[in-house]
């Protein structure tokens, strides 16, 4: 690791953060779809959904956050793909900088941008009646899980960005991720789902993450869900990181 790794990563992160602040629509677009879903499900479908809680916003918010992250990381794949196409990636790589900082800058930018999107969504949810009895520790735990989830998905996005042949290909993988929360406990409890769907829903990563954050926000003790959630996030992170680095090495070979 080079002595300039942190300085170079900071400079390059500043660059891609500027891409986001220059195109404010990036943050708005990533926030607006989840917010629209939040409004739709709370004010249109919500009345007919029986979740066992008196406040559907509280129930729905964690799942909406995961949808926001899943769509937000598509922009990371897009930015990385654009860098590779434009040749600026090669310019950086032919310079005496810490090479890995080129990737890490995109990863950090993804963390910051998704964090901002989530803050906006929580703000809207508060206006819609989201209330929490979570203490500081529970908030930190929820933020930690969300950050870990974002990091894991961002490395998936890095794979897509490095290997895509077209712009559409770079972002397309995220549709699957955006769809996952719908077949989970994010919108309705899994108990009402038919057999096979229920088995899938209860054993896919989103459900355990949603359940953990719901419990944390409700100020209830978290069960074993949080350990399953952490295991999923760390597992996805390690596998995605491994494949991303392999794709990266192929790319610069």
């Amino acid at each position: 690791m080079s002595t300039h790794f942190f300085a170079d990563t900071a400079v390059l992160t500043g660059r891609s953060m500027r891409h986001i602040t220059r195109s404010a629509d990036t943050i708005i677009t990533t926030a607006i779809t989840p917010i629209a879903l939040l409004l739709l499900f709370v004010f249109v479908f919500g009345g007919a959904i029986e979740t066992g809680t008196d406040n559907y916003v509280n129930y729905l918010l964690p799942g909406i956050m995961l949808i926001a992250i899943a769509s937000g990381i598509a922009y990371t794949a897009f930015r990385l793909f654009t860098d590779l196409q434009s040749g600026i990636f090669e310019r950086f790589h032919s310079m005496p900088i810490a090479r890995s900082s080129v990737l890490w800058a995109h990863v950090l930018t993804s963390m910051v941008a998704n964090g901002l999107t989530l803050v906006i969504i929580v703000g809207v949810a508060l206006l819609m009646g989201f209330r929490t009895s979570a203490n500081l520790l529970a908030w930190l735990a929820a933020a930690g899980i969300l950050a870990l989830f974002t990091l894991a998905l961002t490395w998936l996005a890095v794979i897509a960005g490095l290997t895509a042949k077209t712009v559409d290909g770079a972002g397309g993988f995220s549709y699957v991720l955006i769809f996952l929360p719908f077949i989970s406990s994010a919108f309705v409890p899994t108990a009402t789902m038919p057999g096979p769907v229920r088995v899938f829903a209860e054993n896919q990563p989103v459900t355990s993450i949603v359940n953990s954050i719901q419990d944390l926000f409700a100020g209830q003790p978290v069960g074993r869900d949080i350990w399953i959630a952490l295991a999923w996030c760390v597992g996805i992170l390690l596998v995605a990181y491994g494949f991303a680095m392999a794709a990266y090495r192929r790319r610069i070979a």
């Binding site: 660059r15 434009s86 032919s94 005496p96």
Partner: peptide, 16 residues
């Protein structure tokens, strides 16, 4: 890399 600079086939500039 300390002693070189590359100007590639397509202008490698940041458009934004």
């Amino acid at each position: 890399r300390e002693s070189i600079s590359l100007t590639g086939q397509f202008a490698a500039v940041d458009e934004i």
